[in-house]
Simulated assay, not measured.
Amino acid sequence: MKEKFIQLMSASVKGISQVVFIENIISGLLILAGIAIYSIPLGLITIGSAITGTLVACICGADKKILKSGLFGFNSVLGGLAIYLFLEGPHKWIIALLCAGVTTIVTAALMNITKHFDMPILTFPYIILTWFFIGTSFRLSFIKPGANILPQNLINWERELDGPLDWHGLITGIGQVFFLDEILPAFFFLIAIFIASRRYGIYAIIGSVIGWLTALFLGGEITLINLGLYNYNAVLTMIAVTSVLEVKHKNAWITGIFASILSVQITASLDTFLLQYGLPVLTMPFVLSTWLIQNARKVFPNI
């Protein structure tokens, strides 16, 4: 019993680190510590979601190798965090953990579907489930939508282009992978990445800088740039395109930069489209950019 509990906790903590493509207990603990420093409740929902997702996979008979690596946990972690942050009411803890558990089943289903197309699921399962639960909140009184996700009319929408530029957005863009907008947690996340892989850490920094500069150059809203909301998808995209996916040449970093720039444009476009439905962009720009590059490589192997 004790051994099984240790294995469950190990896989759960790795599930936290797998959000940034890392299978490392120390990195997972550092990320969890960064989240807990920002907010104790968020730290609890993070580990609770990781355990719930991993436990559901275990009960359902998941492949032990995949289970131990934490690959059934990272979408649950993000799903639990998203629901807790975007919904309101006394039941959001229950709904967040429910979402974490259901996300594991959706992850398994999509794994089976996408393997026929030689494509990774990435964070797509949590995105779909989060949108589903948020959409449900507008119809069912048990689930209450937060004030920050209410549908908005684009006719009256005005961009906030003026205001002081804050370089902190360069760092908080890394923290926004876990929905956090403060520098200290972002440093914890960056250290966690460097501990597992110096290359991943360097690419995370490059991705954040590229996302920040691209948004600034293209005239993005200053408030969003300062919060790092144009960076985090670029961070994940840069790491995935240059290191995680099958790379056949040493110049993949050039493709990574292109994909990171593309993720910023997709972020702006999706944000505009989803705003009227009260849905957050989440990591969909990262998923779309990465899928695009991976499939392009099947035709153009030199990118």
Rank of each mutant, 00 (worst) to 15 (best):
1 M>W: 08
8 L>M: 11
9 M>Q: 07
11 A>T: 07
14 K>R: 15
15 G>R: 04
20 V>R: 00
22 I>F: 01
23 E>D: 12
23 E>Q: 14
24 N>C: 01
24 N>L: 06
27 S>R: 05
31 I>E: 09
33 A>G: 07
33 A>C: 12
33 A>S: 15
36 A>C: 02
36 A>K: 01
37 I>D: 00
39 S>C: 03
41 P>H: 01
43 G>H: 04
43 G>S: 03
44 L>E: 01
45 I>H: 04
45 I>L: 01
45 I>Y: 05
47 I>Y: 01
53 G>T: 00
53 G>H: 05
54 T>E: 02
57 A>N: 02
58 C>N: 14
58 C>L: 13
60 C>V: 02
65 K>D: 14
66 I>Y: 04
75 N>V: 07
78 L>E: 05
78 L>Y: 09
79 G>A: 14
79 G>M: 11
79 G>C: 15
81 L>K: 07
85 L>T: 10
86 F>V: 07
89 G>V: 07
90 P>V: 10
93 W>E: 01
96 A>R: 10
97 L>I: 04
97 L>V: 05
98 L>Y: 05
101 G>D: 08
102 V>N: 01
105 I>P: 03
106 V>F: 13
111 M>T: 00
111 M>R: 12
112 N>Q: 12
112 N>A: 06
113 I>P: 07
115 K>D: 08
122 L>V: 07
124 F>K: 02
125 P>N: 02
127 I>F: 05
128 I>D: 08
131 W>C: 06
133 F>R: 00
134 I>R: 09
135 G>K: 07
136 T>W: 10
136 T>G: 15
136 T>C: 15
138 F>R: 06
138 F>Y: 15
140 L>E: 10
143 I>W: 04
144 K>Y: 05
145 P>A: 09
145 P>D: 12
149 I>A: 10
151 P>S: 11
152 Q>I: 13
153 N>D: 15
153 N>A: 05
160 E>Y: 09
162 D>Y: 06
165 L>N: 03
172 T>Y: 03
174 I>L: 11
176 Q>Y: 06
180 L>I: 15
181 D>Y: 08
185 P>S: 06
190 L>M: 13
190 L>F: 11
193 I>Y: 06
193 I>E: 08
194 F>A: 08
196 A>F: 00
196 A>D: 09
197 S>C: 11
201 G>R: 04
204 A>R: 07
205 I>C: 14
205 I>F: 12
211 G>D: 09
213 L>V: 15
213 L>W: 10
215 A>I: 09
215 A>M: 12
217 F>H: 09
217 F>W: 13
219 G>V: 03
224 L>H: 09
224 L>R: 13
224 L>F: 09
224 L>W: 12
234 A>S: 15
236 L>G: 05
238 M>I: 01
242 T>I: 01
243 S>R: 11
243 S>P: 02
245 L>D: 09
247 V>M: 00
256 G>H: 00
256 G>P: 03
259 A>Q: 03
260 S>L: 01
260 S>R: 06
261 I>S: 10
262 L>P: 03
265 Q>D: 03
268 A>E: 08
268 A>T: 08
269 S>N: 09
271 D>G: 15
272 T>F: 15
273 F>R: 00
273 F>M: 12
274 L>V: 03
278 G>K: 04
278 G>P: 13
279 L>F: 14
280 P>C: 04
281 V>W: 00
283 T>F: 05
288 L>F: 13
288 L>A: 14
289 S>Y: 08
292 L>F: 15
296 A>D: 00
299 V>E: 05
302 N>T: 10
303 I>W: 10
